[in-house]
Simulated scan of single mutants.
Amino acid sequence: MIDDATTTALRIERLGFAEPVARQLVAQALADLGARYGGEGDETPIAAADFEPPNGAFLVAYRGQTPVGCGAWRSHGDGTAEIKRMFTVPAARGTGVATAVLAAIEADARRAGRTRVILETGGKQPEAIALYGKLGYRRIPNYGYYADEPDCLSFARDL
């Protein structure tokens, strides 16, 4: 039997952060982080306006009509985009969703004039750490809300 999760082409669309599909995926992402780290998952202050062009974007990946992942970027100073809310639904993990979403985020940020991307992740997300390393991201000093947390890992890549 052919698994539809790996054979149906991905479609990636820009959506508003407050759209129901976006809110649903973010809730799943935060639940996943909460299961890994405890608490609310991610307490980094964000606002829907952070992800509005030209200073950001929220992207959703679909297989057919099913949302299977998301990711976003927001401005972080001159020429830099910060990646937020990268998430792939469990049933679609290992099928290229995260790689495609990350490439779409980078392309969108590049079109908006960004020349560098940064992000934070944590030690309890080995799949994310492996993905970022495979795609050329390098460790940088921690920054942002979790800069002083011992499990925080920050990465960057020039576009």
Rank of each mutant, 00 (worst) to 15 (best):
A81N: 00
G77D: 12
A48F: 14
A72Y: 04
Y37K: 01
F58A: 00
A57L: 07
T115W: 11
L59Q: 10
G34P: 14
A98V: 12
G113V: 06
S75T: 14
N55D: 13
M86W: 05
T115P: 04
A112R: 03
G56K: 01
G34K: 10
A29M: 09
P53W: 03
M86H: 06
T95W: 08
H76G: 05
G38V: 05
W73M: 11
L33P: 03
V97G: 08
G64M: 12
Q65C: 04
R74K: 15
E120C: 04
T88F: 01
V117F: 04
E120W: 02
Q65A: 12
V101P: 01
L33R: 06
A47G: 15
N55H: 14
N55V: 07
P67T: 02
G94Q: 09
V97R: 04
V60K: 01
E120S: 05
R110K: 11
G41Q: 12
D108P: 15
V89Y: 00
W73D: 07
G64R: 08
I46Y: 05
V117M: 12
E106V: 09
T44F: 02
T66F: 11
D78E: 13
E106F: 03
R36L: 14
A31K: 11
E43Q: 10
A72M: 08
A35P: 01
V60G: 03
Q65D: 15
G122E: 03
D50L: 07
V60C: 05
A103N: 13
R114C: 06
I105V: 15
G79T: 02
L119Q: 08
R114H: 11
G64P: 08
D42P: 03
G94Y: 06
A29D: 00
G64D: 11
Q65S: 11
Q65K: 08
R63P: 08
P54Q: 10
L59H: 09
T95R: 09
V97L: 12
K84T: 10
R116V: 11
V89H: 00
A35Q: 12
E106A: 12
V117Y: 00
A57W: 03
A81C: 02
M86R: 04
A27Y: 05
P67D: 01
E43R: 06
A49W: 10
Y37F: 09
G113S: 07
V101N: 02
T99S: 15
Q28V: 02
T66M: 14
T95N: 14
Q65I: 05
I83L: 15
A48V: 14
R110I: 04
F87C: 03
